[in-house]
Design a protein around this nucleic acid. Sequence first.
DNA 1: GATGAATGAGGGTTCATTCAT
DNA 2: TATGAATGAACCCTCATTCAT
Lengths: 214, 214, 214, 214
Amino acid sequence: MARLTGDAPAVGHAQGRAQKSAARREAILAAALDEFSARGFAAARLDDVAERAGVAKGTIYLHFQDKEALFQELVRTRLGPLVTALEQLGASDLPIRTVLTGFADMFVQEIYATRRRDLARLVITEGARFPAIAEFYYREVVERAIAALRALVERAIARGELRHDALARFPQLIAAPGVVAILWAGLFERFAPLDVAAMLRAHIDLLLSEGRAR
Amino acid sequence: MARLTGDAPAVGHAQGRAQKSAARREAILAAALDEFSARGFAAARLDDVAERAGVAKGTIYLHFQDKEALFQELVRTRLGPLVTALEQLGASDLPIRTVLTGFADMFVQEIYATRRRDLARLVITEGARFPAIAEFYYREVVERAIAALRALVERAIARGELRHDALARFPQLIAAPGVVAILWAGLFERFAPLDVAAMLRAHIDLLLSEGRAR
Amino acid sequence: MARLTGDAPAVGHAQGRAQKSAARREAILAAALDEFSARGFAAARLDDVAERAGVAKGTIYLHFQDKEALFQELVRTRLGPLVTALEQLGASDLPIRTVLTGFADMFVQEIYATRRRDLARLVITEGARFPAIAEFYYREVVERAIAALRALVERAIARGELRHDALARFPQLIAAPGVVAILWAGLFERFAPLDVAAMLRAHIDLLLSEGRAR
Amino acid sequence: MARLTGDAPAVGHAQGRAQKSAARREAILAAALDEFSARGFAAARLDDVAERAGVAKGTIYLHFQDKEALFQELVRTRLGPLVTALEQLGASDLPIRTVLTGFADMFVQEIYATRRRDLARLVITEGARFPAIAEFYYREVVERAIAALRALVERAIARGELRHDALARFPQLIAAPGVVAILWAGLFERFAPLDVAAMLRAHIDLLLSEGRAR
DNA sequence: GATGAATGAGGGTTCATTCAT
DNA sequence: TATGAATGAACCCTCATTCAT
């Protein structure tokens, strides 16, 4: 069964069966993300997913083996593509400040401002209970992201843009504010909104400038 | 497995009713932390909590109104005390590097190496579904921690220990690696262990030294 | 596994529509027998029947009204023909021992060693839940078989081949070991294989010879 | 948990918890036999079992692991005890006609006229799908019954009560009419009632007297 | 006719909560 | 106060049947 048709399905009553099927599959994934985000994986009800997607309950099982497979597929199809973009950006020869600023912009626009933010939070909050998801996410996202960041940092050090190797040893320190931003949105936004773009800029400044007075 | 009974009442045949009751309450809380950590709030079963605590299922309801109240009480009694220590440390007049290093040590020893790490992860992973818990945590932990960190940073700026105000505007940047450490342990430890103490030291170095070459 | 297609239409590209349709119908019946035998009527899935028959699920409904009608048709088309042969054998004037031995041979070769054994077991095991099937089976098989056996026994008594009328009053006693053989195969074969042909010969000996010493 | 209390539970409002629990367990077993007999194992609904037993659906799961375990327990507790009686009868030194007549009476009174008839039919009709049940039934009932019958027949031969060894080689031939009687009741009773006691007497006559004229 | 995606009622099982003992 | 058997609502998943293509 072709899942990613590539060609955008024709819109309207002229859709073929394959297009309709793919559209339903997408609707189910979108609805599942909504429900999983709102209630958590365990508490989300497939009844609600089906209703939100506008399909019957049984239809979900035509596209996904079970509830867990639905979650996995969500992660796989939504988060996989991201890393490629990140790797390309990281492979460039631009100054590190430019690259990090690009990362921050991409994070804000492609993750933080989109449904991917909820999905990322889901991975963070549910991943421990789903070894397959944690592993996929580690192999496909985290590991590659860390490698790309490390290479970037090492190039910057070689060029003299950075003085010490803390970021090369722990590239997690570069990404940590992104993680915090995602969690903050879900937990504390209503108490204290966070200007994420500004925080990331401040973070880049910190990483790249002298933090201590003479 | 050693149960974290906190200040558990002395065990023995000489306990009064009140002591016994308090001990049971503590046992239930400890068992609940185990089960919630292992399976998540929704999937944890009170049957298992009761068995682990060595009490009957009904006994849980003598001490806590329902499953959610049990979770709230866990957060309230276990995380509240921490912040006081943090505030005291933050209020000192020591050099900021000394204070941050103290924070890091305290984090590693009092949180990361203890059951509180699991509890903190629970708050992070389940908080969005429990507004009361998110609010308690924000008011009692996050807000106070942020205020303490901000005061600390501002004193450091005033003293000339820090050059710019990024950390004063976003004290989250100081704590972000701690959050990442807690999550990493649950998600990716088996793929790539993380030397948390080293990462926190590296982070402090970054925050406090010149990051960029001349 | 050889599908019992009975008088299946010739296979080949020259088949007309009618032949193809009849072939599909036969394939469905054969597949249904496989699945019903293996899992029982209630637990058998039409999905599996369709797959085994090499047709789409919907096609089953072009040939049979519903799952139950499929079962009925199976019994009707597969077991009906048998009795005619049995009646002919029973109507002969040969000595009763010859006729009973003929029955036994026919049972072993035409039922016990074929798919009809499974079908007979299905009737026995599922018949109680399908009044229409029980009735068809009674009218078309059991009643006629009993009548034929009774006539046979009465002729034998009239000729002096048999002394008392037990078998005339209860022809079931003649057939009982056949029933046991069919059930034994499904239930206990793996614990204790049964030599059915030998058992039937022994049974005929018992029925026709002196059982008690003087 | 003690299941077979031995002591008959006190009747009335003074029953203890254990008695009440045992009574519920029995009620569930009785209700399950009703429903399984009426609809077959697969089609029987635990909802109906619970309602018939006067308990909530969940209560079934306090006493039995799942639907299949309920069926197994039914067979185990209801059919196990029977064989002991049969073995004792078979071990006697009475004339074989007396013993077989005793078997027939016991069969009619203790099985055919009771709920055990339905249970026996269930084993016959569902056993093939439940290997554990078929095995239990073979080991605990069939194997022992066959051994007892064979010993009985061999004693009769040694004493000169029987002339040939057909029944020693295939003791199934002794029991076959009982199997047929059980099945007939479920399948054809409404078309042609069967006088089972008379049939069994006729069968014994056949086995023990001369079947063929001089 | 043939297909197979879609439907949705139905049922086994779980588990938070209650309450008689 | 403590127990744990009982409850019953809730939910995942299956599968006979339908129908647009």
